[in-house]
Amino acid sequence: MAGHKRIDEVTGVETTGHVWDGDLQELNKPLPRWWLYVFYACVVWAIGYWMVYPAWPTLSGYTQGYLGYSQRGQLAKDVAAAKAAQETFRQAIAATPITDVQGKEDLFQFALAGGAAAFGDNCSGCHGRGAQGAVGYPNLNDDDWIWGGSLEQIEHTIAYGIRNGNEQARNTPMPRFGLDGVLEPAAIADAANYVRALSDPDGVDKAAAERGKATFAEQCAACHGENGQGNLELGAPNLSDGIWLYGGSQEAVTQSIVTGRGGAMPPWLTRLDPVTVKMLAVYVHSLGGGK
């Protein structure tokens, strides 16, 4: 920019010397010098920041910074702090019988929130995000329970699971009437018609259902009850309420009788602490079907 100053004739202000389109010029309106200093200060700040915080990628990692800060580490700290904050509630829940939790407003709210979180992490894989269930995995929202819908029964089921080898697990299978040759295919078809007629008398082959009545009384009623109302002790589902764990079509019911059923559930006490299991039970119980 050496040389003489160019002055704009109209304003008398110095121009930058640049000319566009033959006559368009830019007046020289310099920024304040402190602006430059602020820029330098930002540069110095950035260098300091590099030293203190993680900044530069390297071939095998990154520069850690003096503070050793990482978002993952921060998360771990936050989680630990949250856990510590929850500890009073967790201890109170541990000391409270599960049937009394609902009566204590703050404990109940804490258990519902903790149960919902644990459900999302552990249970929703099979039972669904809203506990709506799927074929082979019961819907936990309804009032149709296989192993019982009281708080204690739910807690026991979650704690020890179903047919998983655990000593205290719920553990009665359904026989394989077809595969093991207990019943002939025709008798199975008749029995299936009878079972379906329990909840939907008009939607089946009535003659076949009539024929299946004797087979049901002979083979099934011992566990599922005389009227198919089920037995919580044995985990024999209610067959008369139109709620089907494995489907209510003729094919699905037939298959259940032929192959038997024996869905399994893990013993969650081996993975979760007792307080979490307790909170899970309170949460599942609150989904609407709790007895």
Binding site: G128, R129, G130, Q132, N139, N141, D142, D143, D144, N238, D241, G242, I243, L287, G288, G289
Partner: peptide, 18 residues
């Protein structure tokens, strides 16, 4: 309203919303 499930079928055949 609960959206998952939208409604629940009860053992007496009734329908329940949460």
């Amino acid at each position: 309203p609960d959206r998952n499930p939208l409604f629940v079928k009860l053992s007496n055949g009734g329908i329940r919303n949460g």
